[in-house]
Simulated scan of single mutants.
Amino acid sequence: MSLVEPIPTEPAVPWRPVQPLTRDDLDRMPDDGHRYELIDGVLIVSPAPKRVHQHALGNLYYQLRTLCPAELTVLFAPFDVALAEDTVIQPDLLVARSDDFTEHDLPGPPLLAVEVLSPSTRRFDLMLKWSRYEAAGCQAYWVVDPDTPSLIAWELRDGAYVQVAKVTGDEAAHLTSPFGVTVVPADLIS
């Protein structure tokens, strides 16, 4: 009798759920410092962000919070935005009507979603999240790249995103949705 396990002849097949994951499945994920999101029933796990990411996020939060009208709320991740039963995402920063929040989540699109790019999230932020926010009717979507530094902003017009700003370094983006604000990417990382 051999004590050595036989070598498999076929490559291992990664585990996949039989059906798309839902909000209930997401609620059972561990609180371990990772960000867990669902996009069309597929689990997306992201590591904790780096210092430059958090620095840019904090500066932008402060700027938006200072200018935010009383009827709106600015929040930063982690906070769930439930776009559908199989799509629950956590934008790095969001602005929504204060009355639209529950204690647990925002059950629908925010007025503004902001993602600060990281190497591990860049493709999701620029493609998947961009398209899900657009389809859900999120009025404005901004992407900040702290490494460049740069900002690209889109606004929803006739059901589709239109780029309204693309600035780098010391250039200023004068944005109006969901309220007036001027963002200079270099200021976000200083």
Rank of each mutant, 00 (worst) to 15 (best):
residue 103 E to S: 14
residue 78 P to A: 09
residue 119 P to F: 07
residue 182 T to S: 12
residue 24 D to V: 13
residue 147 D to H: 07
residue 151 L to K: 03
residue 133 Y to N: 09
residue 17 P to E: 10
residue 54 Q to P: 02
residue 180 G to C: 00
residue 139 Q to E: 15
residue 65 R to M: 05
residue 56 A to T: 07
residue 12 A to E: 06
residue 153 A to E: 11
residue 186 A to D: 09
residue 79 F to L: 13
residue 182 T to V: 15
residue 104 H to Q: 14
residue 164 V to S: 04
residue 15 W to C: 08
residue 31 D to A: 11
residue 41 G to K: 08
residue 23 R to Y: 12
residue 95 V to D: 09
residue 177 S to N: 14
residue 26 L to R: 00
residue 167 V to E: 02
residue 164 V to E: 03
residue 136 A to N: 12
residue 139 Q to G: 05
residue 27 D to N: 13
residue 155 E to T: 10
residue 69 P to T: 04
residue 96 A to Y: 01
residue 87 T to M: 11
residue 12 A to W: 00
residue 60 L to S: 10
residue 171 E to A: 14
residue 33 G to L: 03
residue 54 Q to W: 03
residue 106 L to V: 09
residue 178 P to Q: 11
residue 120 S to Y: 01
residue 126 L to Q: 15
residue 31 D to V: 07
residue 42 V to S: 12
residue 32 D to A: 09
residue 86 D to M: 09
residue 34 H to V: 02
residue 156 L to E: 06
residue 42 V to T: 14
residue 89 I to H: 02
residue 68 C to A: 11
residue 54 Q to S: 07
residue 21 L to R: 09
residue 24 D to L: 14
residue 30 P to T: 01
residue 44 I to K: 11
residue 101 F to I: 10
residue 186 A to S: 13
residue 174 H to A: 15
residue 83 L to R: 03
residue 138 C to G: 11
